[in-house]
């Protein structure tokens, strides 16, 4: 564990807490893409198949349970909670994400570290996470003004993978034979997808204005 990875995990945890706070405090999920939340639930379920087979550390196990539990809870809340579900922007959140799921799974069948059930699903989860934010970014552009908590949620979600890139550079420099090409390339693509969001987020922060994404 290094400071970059810890910062990345904490930033990821903060993004989940901000989202839970928004939904719990405002009893509303307006501006949140259910499709991105469902993609993230798939990412965690596919990635943490080794949850019960490989014990790495208490930290690792606890964090996996937190990410799986929170993503499923948010999906449940947005689908079935009688108050929250009313504020879901159903007509704006129309990204056909099964194309993404199919493409990532096909890619994982071709490109993986080892051709085993667990490794293929792990690679699938890495590729899927890289594009999971797309429905959310599309929804933000369509829904115009973005409330603060939603903006912060997306910001922290994007920042966490940037910390992971620093972590991979650090590990590449300090650990012999450390290579995680699948994670690195995917992580770069994932962070790049946030580039324009980060730009408009910074502008809104500098001008102390509401976050506005151009339609």
């Amino acid at each position: 564990m290094n400071i970059f990875r810890l910062a990345g995990d904490m930033t990821h945890l903060i993004s989940v807490l901000v989202l839970l706070l928004k939904i719990y405090a405002t009893k509303s999920c307006s501006g949140i893409s259910l499709k991105t939340q469902e993609l993230y639930a798939m990412v965690f379920l596919a990635r943490y198949l080794d949850l019960f087979s490989d014990f790495i550390s208490l930290y690792n196990t606890v964090m996996k349970l937190v990410f799986i539990g929170s993503s499923l809870a948010i999906v449940w809340c947005m689908r079935y909670h009688r108050v929250v579900r009313r504020s879901y922007d159903r007509e704006l959140d129309t990204f056909r994400y099964w194309i993404l799921v199919g493409a990532c799974f096909t890619l994982a069948l071709v490109l993986h570290e080892k051709f085993s059930f667990q490794e293929v699903f792990w690679a699938f989860s890495i590729y899927l996470e890289a594009v999971a934010i797309l429905p959310q970014l599309v929804l933000l552009q369509r829904s115009g003004n973005v409330d603060n908590l939603t903006g912060q949620y997306v910001f922290f979600l994007g920042a966490y993978r940037a910390f992971y890139i620093l972590n991979w550079i650090y590990r590449y420099l300090t650990e012999p034979r450390f290579t995680r090409w699948i994670s690195c390339v995917s992580g770069l693509v994932q962070t790049a997808l946030y580039a324009d969001f980060f730009y408009y987020y910074f502008i809104s922060w500098k001008n102390n204005a509401k976050l506005q994404l151009p339609a």
Binding site: R5, D9, H12, D50, D54, I56, S57, N60, M63, K64, F67, E113, K114, W122, Y164, N167, R180, S183
Partner: peptide, 10 residues
């Protein structure tokens, strides 16, 4: 046996 690259990251 090839060591399974341990997935120690989240």
């Amino acid at each position: 046996q090839e060591i399974k690259t341990q997935k120690d990251e989240l």
